[in-house]
Amino acid sequence: MAQKQTAKKGKRKKDLHALAVFTRGIIRENSLFVLLLGMCPALAVTSSLETGFGMGLLVIFVLTLSNIVVSLIRKAIPEEIRIPAYIVVIATFVTIVGLLTEAFAPALHESLGIFIPLIVVNCLIMERANNFASKNNVVLSAIDGIGVALGFMLALMLIGGTREFLATGALAYGVYLPLPLEGSIINAGLTLFQMEVFVGPAGGFIVIGFWLAVFKAFELYNKRKKKEARDRWIEKKKKEAAERKRRKAMESAGGSA
């Protein structure tokens, strides 16, 4: 059964066009909430909306470039050293991104700190290189990289925004990144109810756990809905079949009679 399903999926993927590749990674196969990839940065750098956004940008950059390069060199690399070659490619891009961040967004570099070099061990990037870019052409790989990383960024921003809002009662931006909106604040005036624990480590775990549960609840709800619909459909078909059978029986009975 399982084999049949994957085979079916694989067949369908053949004629996936670029748009589908792009949107797939954002919601349906969101790398963080659905596939649970890249937990460490998701916990550590999401104490505010903007750090989540910044980290997301870096991941977009690294993932897209590494996907492109991996896809370009996929035919030149012997099977045996495929994985180490990917690691080198990723580590190179991470180093480059680290240097660029330090030069152009020093505040972001400071606040992400150790988690910039740690992008290198972010499972998400390796997974995409190994499972997608090594099998598809450059354009598709680039699109996939952007899509998946965008999904990751949105997830980080969702977590970061939640944590920042709960902790400070406001959302600030323009603090870490050279955005034109420097120093703007969306203040909900809830400063009375701020819960500092949410910018802390404990809050990170709890907020991610909460969002995971929400997404899972949605998934379960959808599943149940689908199952109910299918059950109804089966029921209907069964009824129709029974009806047909009855009619046939009646007809044959009538014919013989």
Partner: peptide, 19 residues
């Protein structure tokens, strides 16, 4: 183990998603 898509994890490496 999905929490960690490890490149050299022999339990995970051949498993692909969506393709």
């Amino acid at each position: 183990c999905t929490a960690c898509m490890n490149y050299s994890c022999r339990y995970k490496i051949e498993e692909t998603r969506g393709d």
